[in-house]
């Protein structure tokens, strides 16, 4: 009888432990608590516009278009 009582206590202990860890795992994988993936942001200085229609670029457009053939 004494041993049975001990056994039950032990089961309760492990049951409680299992339940607690299950809650912890559920919290960790829950989509509600997960952080949203963020793209790498190197800062505004590195993502700013670098393209500009310089004379060099305009010459590229001019020589690739058919308008050069008309001249």
């Amino acid at each position: 009888m004494e041993q049975d009582k001990k056994g039950v206590d032990r089961r309760k202990f492990f049951g409680a432990l299992g339940g607690a860890s299950g809650v912890a795992v559920a919290a960790a994988v829950s989509p509600l608590t997960a952080t949203v993936a963020q793209a790498y942001d190197p800062g505004s200085a590195e993502t700013k516009t670098r393209y500009r229609e310089s004379e060099h670029v305009k010459a590229f457009y001019r020589t690739n278009g058919y308008e050069t053939l008309k001249k």
Partner: peptide
């Protein structure tokens, strides 16, 4: 690891 980013010129770059 989300190492990609897109610039204002719509160029896809990575770190």
């Amino acid at each position: 690891v989300n190492c990609f980013y897109t610039t204002a010129d719509a160029v896809v770059l990575h770190s």
